[in-house]
Nucleic acid binder design. Sequence first.
DNA 1: TTGTAAGCGTTATCAC
DNA 2: GTGATAACGCTTACAA
Lengths: 340, 340
Amino acid sequence: MRRPTMDDVARRAGVSRALVSLVMRESPKVSPQRRAAVLEAADELGYSPHVMARQLASRTPTVLAVLVSDLRNPYFADVVEAVEAEATAAGLDTILSTGGRRPAAERRAVETMLGFRPAGLVLLSPVVPVSVLGRASAAAPVVAVERTVSLPGVDTVTDDGRAGSRLAVDHLVGLGHTRIVHLDGGQGAQSSTRRRGFVDAMRAHGLEPVVEPSEYTEEGGAAAVTRLLLRGERPTAVVAANDVNAIGAMTALDDAGLSVPGDVSVVGYDNTSLAGLRHLGLTTVDQRRAEMGRLAVRAVLERLREGRTTPTRHRLRPSLVVRTTTGPPPDRPRATPPAS
Amino acid sequence: MRRPTMDDVARRAGVSRALVSLVMRESPKVSPQRRAAVLEAADELGYSPHVMARQLASRTPTVLAVLVSDLRNPYFADVVEAVEAEATAAGLDTILSTGGRRPAAERRAVETMLGFRPAGLVLLSPVVPVSVLGRASAAAPVVAVERTVSLPGVDTVTDDGRAGSRLAVDHLVGLGHTRIVHLDGGQGAQSSTRRRGFVDAMRAHGLEPVVEPSEYTEEGGAAAVTRLLLRGERPTAVVAANDVNAIGAMTALDDAGLSVPGDVSVVGYDNTSLAGLRHLGLTTVDQRRAEMGRLAVRAVLERLREGRTTPTRHRLRPSLVVRTTTGPPPDRPRATPPAS
DNA sequence: TTGTAAGCGTTATCAC
DNA sequence: GTGATAACGCTTACAA
């Protein structure tokens, strides 16, 4: 199981190791003939360069480390895809890791990745304490996505949660809703921003903002709506903390015999693949995930290759995706309700 | 941004580099006093060992590479979690990668991981050609999860799809169903096994097995059911290719004005988190994902540390999770026109 | 228990 | 173009 080395390839091709190295790095200063010979020898031997040795010798980091906070949330797939594409274009190998949203595990994951001496560390919705981010940023350029940090060594890329909530509220108000409740994301990443956006938007419309504590889970959404109904409050629309939270809310509404959007309209946040399921058809706020991934990698590259030392703060404008869970309130039916 | 090395730590602690190395590897042959000094120096410097250099020097692989074929499918999260736990227990660092179910990208991902000279390669539902698996197995122990391969160098861990389908059929027949259709997973990983199990189980019950081509996607499920209804076939139960396929099927049934499980019962496969959403409550077949992850790592370890050279083939028995999408068939078939 | 020195597989720097 | 030779940061006999 000993893997072939450059020397093996060189011997087989009848050239020097240095030449093989040049070929592997696609240097233009190799004759096509020799290059072909080397490539053939490499192929026969099943040789591929030793990333570790290469990085060690070149004194140049070649791997980009990405921490995915939660593999169960399809939200991250799009960001990762964009990150990988951008990293590959920049000549970096991407490695992923996860901590399952558990701070301790995530911390370990960060340590592990740092052990690879990465060119940069992209953290997607990390839950580790700021101190960990600080320490990490001493070792490599760190970019936090969907987490607000004000450390000088940590760049951030976030979605503009205020704008997102505003989009949701404007949409609902436009449909005629006035009694709108926001389910709060609690400790979750961008929940306070989204809440603020909701409150501001409601006030701007001269409406009373009602916020019900909840969290970024299905159960949280269901529980919050159940509490609301038990108290006798009957909003005509709900702006949920995120998509799964919205699904929980819809379940509770369903259990209470209320129809969506007939009796109550529901808006989610994140536009996960869940929202797109036709069975659900959730109206939701879409974060520009691909763009976020791209910007994260670029931020790393700027620190790495262009020597930037001041932090970058990207805040992206989200957009609204209208599906079938929103419609006019029951009080004020329209002639033609939106598509079902 | 130059990171401290062992030499830096050694200098600062007033000891030799070798001593620092011993401390880092938690050797017992270091005096508590020196150990403390070294640890303190390391902490002050923010030092952490260079994984690449370590692996290079020790000639011992320390990283386990895991390929997740599709980050969008929550199915994999559980497997990955188990893999990581088991790997950590064995002293291996885990790195993840993905190819987004695209053969070319996945192949690149495999190459990249091989560049790290991993202790082993765990491939979750890989879609790359067998030849790639064969080549990879020459470089490191390879375990394919949920993919049947008969290469001597590749171990496999799969779910017993036949048993799973049988569970679904037995459940439905027990409820009184006789007209049951299976939506076939097409090119997908274990689809032929699941199909075979369905056919066998139906025959065992003296029933006619009906199989409709489909695929492991929501659209595929919806399209298959729509075709079925257009042809005037009205099964009372559907055994879907997997969970998302089942969701697509349910959407199509819904569009056709058929209720689940009132008119048609639906069973999924995989027990993804989707199935558990109360809004859906999908009856489905549960694969023992955690166990599969554990076995995969153990297979790697056996080849790596115990010198096993003959392939291992694990086949795990699934179980049925009954939720709310299955029930007795309608008393008598209603005369509902097929979908529009 | 601690220090010395020789690699590990690669890249980089020079001469040739 | 090509081939020595010195790093890179670490582990590991072996010596002290």
